[in-house]
Each structure stands twice: as C-alpha cells, then as structure tokens.
Design a protein around this nucleic acid. Structure first.
Lengths: 264, 264
DNA sequence: AAACCTAGTTTCATATAATGAAACCACGGT
DNA sequence: ACCGTGGTTTCATTATATGAAACTAGGTTT
C-alpha cells in the first residue's frame, strides 16, 4: 500500500524530516531509514534542490522547505473547509467568545484547519496544519463517530491509545461505546481527555448524505465553565455546522480519504 | 536546472495543479503539460495516492491535497522566521495598529509568512502562504535590495513586470534605481504600486553578516495616512527587525536560496 | 605526526522503474 | 447503431534508480 514508485519513497523521506520537528542530520535519518546510504543521500539532495527541504550547510541539517508553505496555501484554500467555513467560524467565535477549532480527518488523525482564539485572531499556520490524535479530542471522536463502520475499524486500528490524562479513553472498547453515545446525542465532549483542565464540546459537520466533512469545537477550561455550560452552545454549534454544510454542498467536495482509484 | 529526476517532474505536476487555484481536469492539464498522456496520468495517480492531491471522482478534478497542510505546518515552524518573529510582530502590531506583514524571499517571489490584521481590517490580497511579486511590493523590493548582485540579476530576470497600477515599476532599470535608493535609505515603500490606495513601508531583516533573512512591513491606505505618516514607524520597525535578527542569530538559520550543494 | 575513526560524498555495473505510442474503454451525443 | 471525446491500460523500449564499495575530509586517539 505505501510507497508507490520513486515519488512515494521521496515523499516518505520528506515526511520523515517533517516528523522530527527540528533540523535533522543525515546520519540520524540514515539510522532510522529503510534506504541505503546513497539512496537516502540522493533523495535529500533532490528534495533540497526542489526546495521541499531546506539544508543548513553549517550544521549539515535538513528541515522542511518553504516551498511547502506555498503549496499548502493552495491546498488550504481549495481542499479544505476553511474558506467556506470562515465567515461562519468568525460569527461563532464572536458569539461565544471562546477558542473555536475547525478540523478535518486526515489519515486517521485530526488535522486542525482553522482556529479562532478568544482574544485575537491567529494566523493560519500557527495552529492550522497541526495534527492531533483522533481518539482523545472532541473533534476527533465526533468525526469518527459518523464515519463508515469500516473506516472506524481502520482508524481505531491505527490509534496509539496513549494515556494523556486520567480521563483518556485507552481502549478500543471504551472508545467504541463513546462513539455510540456521540451518535445518539449528535455531538460530543472532550472531558479533559487530552489535557487536564481543558474541556470542549464538538459538533460534526455532516453533508446531506451524512458524510463527515469535518467538525468544529468550542474549547474552554474547567476553571471558567463545565460541561453543562458548554452544552448551552449546542444550538449555535448546530446552526453553524449546518450552515457550513450547506455552503459546502454547492462547492461539491473532494473526498479526502478516497479509496485508491485503481485496483492495480 | 529544473526537474531533476522523476521526483522533480512529479513536483512540477503538483505545482501545476496548485497554480490553477481551482479544481482542474485531466484534459485541461494535459493541454498545458509537457508530459504525454499516460505519464501525466500516472503522476496524478501517484500524487493522489500519496494524498498530495485530492481527487474528486464526481467532477473528475484534482486539487492540492491535505497532506500538504500538515507538512507546511512543520515547514512554517522550522524553516521560517515566523516562530522567532511572532512575539516581536505581536508587539509591533499592537503599537502601530495597522496591518503588519512578515515575508521571506522564495524563488524570486515574495512569500508571506505571517500577518497581523489592523484593528480595522481592510480586505486585502495577502495571507500567510500566499505569494506576491517581488518587484512591486514593499517587502519584495526591500529584500531584493540587500541581496547579492548576482541574486538580484537572477531575480530581476524572472520578474514579469506586469503593470498593476499607474505607479508600478515596469522596467528593470526603474527597479534597479529604486533598489539603489532603498540601499541608501535602509528601508522602502510601496507607493500604490500593487494596489491602488494601498501603501506600505517595509524594513529588511538582516543578519549580522548582512544576509537578508526576510522583511516586515506596515500597510495602510491613502485614505488614512500618507508616506510621511508611515515614515514615522521607521524607528519601531528598525527596532523590531533588529530584535528578530538577533533572535534568529542564535537559531542559526538554514539558507533558503542555498546554492546547489553539488557542482555535478 | 602517523594511524584511525566517523560522517559525508562519489563511482559504476546492474536491476528496476519510468516512458509513451498505440490500443482500448466508457459514455454522451447524433 | 455509429461516432467522438475524455479517460485508462498495455507492453516493448529506454532511461533511471539503485546500492556495494571505494573514496574523501575532519576530527580524535595513539
């Protein structure tokens, strides 16, 4: 499944660099790479020439390159809910005065697409582009809950179920009952499952056909409110989600987790 | 120079998709592509499998994929000035109350890395990740002015010199004298050269060695102020730029436009 | 200072993967 | 039923990626 052709391998290398989250040396990568020395070396050269990577000659380190930022802008504007949702998120943010997140599901992980801080608007890549675990975030669980059973199985398979807090759901079984609850409610919570003191209410964004387009959430702290307090946002969240879904409808959305086109 | 190997070609295809700025059909791309039909077809398949592209089966269109957003987040955090500059930009924004831009030079174009909106937001062309022309933006001219002569020549070579407004500099000669002025002043302006009514003052961010790290600018409109008014921001801009440069120093920055590593 | 690492770079015969002309589908129109 | 356009697949040919081994530059130990 993974790695089709030379291009796939090169992109794996790119992912590997990105995964470090810091400039990384050749030897370091080599140790963790399935590729032999010269192969890895050439991939890094090629990617650097293409400015997908940036090379620091002093420290001899590689990091993700600026060309990605440019490409991502196009991706963000065309292939995510963000541009459609923007006005609705703005309105929601103004109404609730709390941190608002917009997320989509990408490859078994939650990808944050946009964000409004309570106080000041934050730029797109400062938070947007960040990924989080699907099993212990409000948006993650809510999106998962409304996916096809087959997708749910596949995604659960890939979760690490790392315990972040005392409340983290750490077993597939616990997660499945939670998903079931979410399906009957129509929305879900994060009960300090990812960070202590941080709670949120999350609402799925569903197309007419019931397909999951994304999710949005309002986040707060236990010091400011509680789950019941967050629940008062349900109407406005539902309203916002359905407006986004409506607008997305006309746009006719690409299927991000589309099955491979070819059976090969 | 362009296109080293299969990977380079695939990335060219990716760029092509991104350049359209909208979902694009296979046949449309084929018409504009140097590749023969099956080759282009396979590149699109590979990129789609890798989620660098998103394919809409209904409309049979391709757009940039979400994987890019994730990768770009890493790039933004590691290979741009943005994380280092953030606190300083925040302070600057608060002090001047106008739109503030942070930009870097990427491949003869201006890449906007971060942005703070004015209290009173004016709808404008720019956003983080967006690119603009180097020859008719404040940040572009200012960065170019302090580049090596060889780089200047190369970049000027690649400019389109499209006339956006009456004030746009449309010849290499005009641009070169402007750059010379900027070098002696230490900063530069955008005199409605890109958009009518929009003016800005731009300050380069230079390392100790005099290398161009990026630029920042304060933008306003002719209805609110004039060039002389913007000039009053020079001290705070200089201060901000030097603080960013100082912080970047310790970080030891990758060279984005590094010469190719190998003489081949 | 000679010997010896270690990390990075280059070579080159071989294996592998990309290539693209042509053939093939699928479907909407006539 | 026929044609035509747009998309997909085949397959012999060719170009490209591959990786063992050899090499080089710095730094470290004897």
């Amino acid at each position: 499944m993974t790695s089709d052709g030379t291009v796939g391998k090169a992109l794996d290398v790119l992912d590997q660099v990105a995964a470090y989250g810091r400039p990384v040396r050749f030897s370091e990568m080599l140790a963790a790479s399935p590729f032999p020395k010269p192969t890895l070396y050439r991939f890094l050269q090629t990617l650097t020439n293409q400015r997908m990577l940036a090379y620091d000659p002093d420290r001899q380190t590689y990091s993700p390159g600026v060309r990605l930022v440019r490409l991502a802008h196009a991706a963000w504007e065309q292939s995510t809910l963000a541009p459609i949702a923007r006005p609705h998120i703005d309105a929601l943010s103004a109404a609730v005065g709390e941190t608002v997140h917009l997320a989509q599901l990408d490859h078994a992980q939650v990808l944050y697409i946009d964000k409004r801080n309570a106080n000041k608007p934050v730029q797109m890549f400062s938070q947007a582009g960040k990924v989080g675990p699907a099993y212990c975030t409000g948006v993650g669980k809510v999106m998962l809950a409304f996916c096809d059973p087959a997708v749910i199985d596949a995604v659960i398979e890939q979760q690490s179920f790392h315990r972040f807090t005392a409340a983290t759901l750490t077993t597939p079984a616990a997660l499945r009952t939670e998903l079931s609850d979410i399906r009957s409610n129509g929305y879900g919570f994060d009960r300090e499952e990812h960070e202590p003191g941080i709670i949120c209410i999350a609402m799925p964004i569903l197309s007419d056909g019931g397909r999951v387009l994304g999710a949005l959430s309002v986040t707060s702290t236990t010091s400011r409110t509680n789950l019941a307090g967050l629940e008062s946002y349900v109407p406005i969240l539902q309203d916002t989600a359905s407006k986004i879904a409506r607008d997305a409808q006309s746009w006719s959305f690409p299927d991000h987790d589309a099955k491979e086109q070819t059976g090969r």
